[in-house]
Structure formats: C-alpha cells, structure tokens
Amino acid sequence: MINFEEELKRFFPSLEIEDSEEAIYRQDMTDAADLLLGVIREDYAGYSETPTE
C-alpha cells in the first residue's frame, strides 16, 4: 500500500542549471583508487618512499 506522505519524501528537488557550477565544485571525486593510494601511503609511512632496487 502506498503511503503518500512517505512516498512524497522520496522526491527531491532537481538540480537546476544555475546550481550546476556549485554542484561540480562540491562533487566528491574520491574513488577506490584514491582510497587504495591512501592506504598504501599509510603503509609506507614508516618506510622509505623511494623504490628499492
């Protein structure tokens, strides 16, 4: 059974064209590769960052 009020809450205002610039700047561009890189950097924090020969 559809609950009108609950369903209505699921609708969100659409992004307007004037707001798209701000939306671009606010975009979270972190992906899995960034996370992986962060993990690797943490792992290497106690080690030298230059590759061993």
Binding site: S14, L15, E16, I17, D19, S20, A23, I24, Q27, M29
Partner: peptide, 13 residues
Amino acid sequence: TGETAAALTQWVI
C-alpha cells in the same frame, strides 16, 4: 530522464 543540470555536471567534469 530529464535531469538536464545533472547531465551537464557530469559532462563538464
């Protein structure tokens, strides 16, 4: 689907 601004956002990025 009619979300024109969202489409523009993705294309600009």
